[in-house]
Amino acid sequence: MAEKAVQRETVLSLRETIAQIENRRLPGVVRAAQAADPAGFRRQREEGSRNKILPLGVPPLDDVLGGGLPLAGMTEIRNAETRDAGAAAGFVTALAVLCQRRKREKGHLGPVLWISQGLASREAGLPYAPGLKSYGLDIERFLFVSIRTVKDALWVAETALSVPVFAAVVLEIRGNPACLALSESRRLHVRARAGGVPLLLFRQAGEEEASSAFFRLQIKPASAGERPLPDGSMLCGSIGHPAFHVLVEKSRAYASADIFLEWNAHDRRFYPIEQSVASQADGQSANSVDPFSASVGRSSGADQMGRLLAYARAS
């Protein structure tokens, strides 16, 4: 009996392999078996999905994210104000560069799709090809869609997620539109997981809102370091690699995360920067006083969380 089951599993896995080679959908038998036999197939699948994490190379951030950026599913990145859109766009682009590089290393084409609500790209500017290129993105594999309404943008995102080609799909939305509420974000998340594509929901100038994303990161601008000179010293008064202040607002980890990073376009990776340097350079004026003490064990939306049981819907 056991032998028969093993044989059956071999046959099924062979069929699955053939289906993958022929680039077809799974035959009905295999799908039925997968559904019926969660013990066997699920375990394999979960092992597979554990690989689908992209470490960002910054230990504190990777710890909070549980290993890195999930490569199948939705991650939300937001910024509070339109004028911070540059920093947030930089962080999103950096993630896209990392996803693209990983996909390219595996021999895939790895195009990046950037879907932008028309209003968002009018307010914060259009992506600029030479800038993206010097940022490390392969712009020959960069597709940009500008769409007038959020509904259409969601449709494009969903369609793109069902195509298992893209290295990353960026969905740029402005504010908290009503037609991107919890159920829609759930739908996108499920699509992204099924398609095995990382979806970066870039919420420009948006409020904190409950969503189905794995993580929600808020990006704030941070002062960049100085440009290094060949002899190792720093060029005084120059603007070096772009830096970000990342606040992890939603995560599974029970720890506050307030991380300063910089993106090195030449190495195409993040480097942590020391918080002391960063916060000193953060431009906090000397007489500013924190209204509440920083809470421990809360994510960094902190001071509001105490009196909120659940979020009101922002959209």
């Binding site: 895939h108 290129k133 597709l143 869609v145 195509v163």
Partner: peptide
């Protein structure tokens, strides 16, 4: 390694059919 051009083309066609040919763009220098 599946051929990636076909699904990409299918995606492009879907988009163009729905929103017109100018909708999907690629970066040029």
């Amino acid at each position: 390694v599946p051929d990636e051009s076909q699904p990409l083309a299918a995606f492009a066609d879907k988009l163009c059919a729905r929103f017109g040919p100018d909708c999907l763009t690629f970066a040029t220098l």
